[in-house]
């Protein structure tokens, strides 16, 4: 053995490295399916976007639907609620956003001011806030007392940011597609 190393050390070392590297490439590639299988599968991705008919929600009420395993609030706001949300001076807010920035335009290009769509999860620690509760008649989180207004913006309590607006669009006047 000793003399082999003396005769052609580089060729032999190269052989080890090349063989080992080629085997390692294969092992690495074989690991990918084991990792990727934990990603959302085809049946989960098929539910990643939902279409929703909101025509039946009366003014001044709200429904909760499930989207990607989370609650989504669809709130048909009254004119008073819209006016209250618009009247806020955003410089006083912890997470400054105008009401309009949190809304979407309908098929005609005009902002659908009466429809507020929110992911119903408190941005503090993930509880589901209660609608029409709290000081601003918006949302109140029972876990740690965060208070949101009628635009879902954080006004009081420990939550750091406004309630999240999911990606959505108006397919027609009464139909939205979330996701």
């Amino acid at each position: 053995m000793a003399d082999i190393h003396a005769v052609e050390p580089t060729r032999r070392d190269f052989l080890y490295v090349a063989t080992g590297a080629f085997a390692a490439i294969g092992a690495g590639a074989a690991v990918w399916p084991l990792i990727d299988q934990m990603n959302p599968d085809a049946s989960v991705l098929a539910l990643a976007s939902i279409e929703l008919d909101i025509g039946a929600v009366p003014v001044g009420q709200e429904i909760t639907v499930k989207w990607r395993g989370k609650p989504v609030f669809v709130r048909h706001r009254t004119e008073a609620e819209v006016a209250a949300a618009d009247a806020v001076d955003i410089t006083e807010l912890k997470d400054p956003q105008t009401d309009d920035q949190r809304l979407m335009a309908g098929p005609d290009g005009k902002l659908e001011k009466q429809w507020l769509i929110l992911v119903g999860i408190c941005t503090h620690l993930g509880c589901v806030p209660l609608a029409y509760k709290g000081e601003y008649d918006g949302y109140f989180c029972p876990c740690h007392g965060s208070v949101y207004d009628t635009s879902g913006r954080i006004r009081k309590g420990p939550a750091p940011t406004n309630l999240e607006v999911p990606p959505y669009q108006f397919v027609s006047d009464t139909k939205i597609k979330i996701g």
Binding site: L15, T19, F22
Partner: peptide, 9 residues
Amino acid sequence: ALAGILFFA
């Protein structure tokens, strides 16, 4: 290819 390399190794 792997079997070939290993054969020569």
